[in-house]
Amino acid sequence: MITAGIDIGSSTSKAVLIDEGDMLSYSIMPTGAESVNSARRVMADVLDKAGISAKDVSYILATGYGRVIVPFANEALTELTCHARGAHFLFPNVRTILDMGGQDCKAIRCDANGQLLNFVMNDKCAAGTGRFLELIARVLGVSLDALSDLALKATATIKINSTCAVFAKSEVTSLIREGKNRCDVIAGLHDAIAMRVFNLLRGVGIESQLAITGGLGKNKAIIREIEKKTDLNCMIAEEPQIVGALGAALFARDKFI
């Protein structure tokens, strides 16, 4: 029984194929402006990787920001429900999940069965999201991946006062112009983001154990700061970006139980 989960996020589209509890393949692609096309592309890619064809897939469940536009999906569920499910599948003891995606950031609480208990989204603000870090990386002329490494090299943390992405960008630019160490500024930025998401987590109540999902789960500097603030070890999937799609595939599998 093969089922698929497809997660159309604001930055990237993800697809996961599972056969019962085993993952067959996954795919991650930029969403771009044409969400329908990216849904088709990421689905074609994940099928290709598994070496199967569309007719072998029994059920497709879509999630993410673009879930309603996936033309070939059988059903749609929100990413909150799917992230809780995916994270719980990977880490059965998880109770708190922080999903840090391209467009928004969500703190999620679930029970022992992975059932959603409560959630908070960051409200209408880009700070603390993947897009924000992309913007900062561009301003500083480094790649997104390099940003985290530079922050980890810092010897001091320069406080960034602005919590708004636009103001923070100006603040970072002027600090660099003042001759402040680039790594220290970047570390300050990571600290500021961690502070914001920490408050978001407090909004749902932090309960051990904590998992981080979404693209920012790959940023080691952010994880380090969050771990410091929460005093918890974060559990992170090998590929944190596909947790939502995995959850969707698992919900698809439930249809046949």
Binding site: T78, L80, L116, F119
Partner: peptide, 12 residues
């Protein structure tokens, strides 16, 4: 944006 939250809330 509210629609997303509401759908998740209903699912919950």
């Amino acid at each position: 944006t509210q629609r997303d939250d509401i759908e998740a809330f209903i699912e919950m």
